[in-house]
Amino acid sequence: MKTVLKNGTEIVIRQAEPEDAKAIVETMALIISQTKNLGREPDEWNKTVEEETAILNRFKDSVDDYMAVADDDGHIVAVASFHGRPLKRLRHRVNLGISILKAYHHQGLGTALMKHLLQQAKRMGKHTVELEVRADNVHAIELYKKVGFVIEGVKKQGFYVDGDYIDELMMAYYMEDNL
């Protein structure tokens, strides 16, 4: 799927392939170094290309997991995915995550990636898409609400960053309410 960002850049959003593993590992390392909104510190990102390749191979045929990348002329600039569980009672739900290089923030890429993931989740028969977000990450929360997510709850002190506790919002998207 092609999308044109607000600044005119044309981006291709597509399913991640095993050949993308090295670029994904490198892009995620850079994204994690640029933000404190994700759940890990830069020194905690230690995934190898071999580990990422194995994940991508597993995702190719999965009915519960999916990963997409945003490709800017051969450069991966964002990674987005959802993960489910094979348990019959929980199979209808997936947990979503999205990570975008700072240079691509506020250009419409987040919205395009979210729509892509939600459409893929629907195609895979999922009914509920869940995510967690720092309560002070206003831009992300606005994006999630814009595409149809609702706040379900708060994990008090869900994050600990730079000596401060920050609440975490639990949000969900219900297919029957939106698509």
Rank of each mutant, 00 (worst) to 15 (best):
K156H: 03
K6F: 10
E176G: 02
I55Y: 11
H92V: 04
H75S: 09
M175S: 14
L131F: 14
S62D: 08
M28S: 06
V147G: 11
E26T: 09
T35L: 07
L101Y: 00
G148R: 15
V12Y: 01
E132F: 13
I151L: 11
I100A: 07
T9G: 08
A16M: 04
Y160N: 13
D162T: 08
V25L: 05
N137M: 11
I151N: 06
R14S: 05
L169S: 01
L117F: 01
W45I: 14
V77T: 02
R58A: 13
G74K: 04
T128M: 15
E19Q: 11
A70P: 03
G148C: 13
V138I: 14
V4C: 08
K156I: 01
D43N: 14
H116T: 02
N7V: 15
D61R: 09
D162G: 12
V129H: 11
R93S: 11
G110Y: 03
Q34N: 08
A112T: 00
D73M: 10
A103Q: 13
K122M: 08
P86H: 15
H106Q: 02
G84V: 02
A54S: 10
D177N: 14
K60N: 00
E19T: 15
S62L: 00
R134C: 12
N95V: 00
S62F: 00
V49A: 09
F159V: 09
M28F: 05
R134K: 13
L169M: 07
Q15L: 06
A21H: 05
N46S: 11
V63S: 13
E17D: 07
L96E: 06
K156N: 00
A21G: 01
D167E: 03
M67P: 07
M124D: 06
K47H: 08
A78C: 02
S62A: 02
K60C: 04
V133W: 09
E26P: 01
Y174W: 15
K102H: 10
V129D: 06
E50T: 04
G97R: 11
A68Q: 04
K102Y: 05
K6M: 02
W45H: 06
K115R: 10
A16C: 02
A140H: 10
Q15P: 05
A80R: 00
L90R: 10
Y160C: 10
R123S: 14
V154T: 14
S62M: 07
I13W: 04
R123Y: 11
K102S: 12
L38Q: 15
N178R: 15
A78E: 01
L38R: 15
R91K: 13
G148V: 13
K156S: 08
I11D: 04
E50C: 11
M170H: 09
W45C: 09
Y174G: 05
K36E: 15
S33I: 08
D167F: 05
F59M: 09
K60T: 04
A54V: 13
L117M: 11
D61C: 09
L117D: 06
M170T: 10
P86L: 14
G108E: 04
V154C: 01
N95H: 13
K146C: 10
V12C: 02
A23I: 08
K115A: 01
M67Y: 12
D43C: 12
K146M: 12
T9E: 14
K22Q: 10
R85Y: 03
E19I: 15
W45V: 15
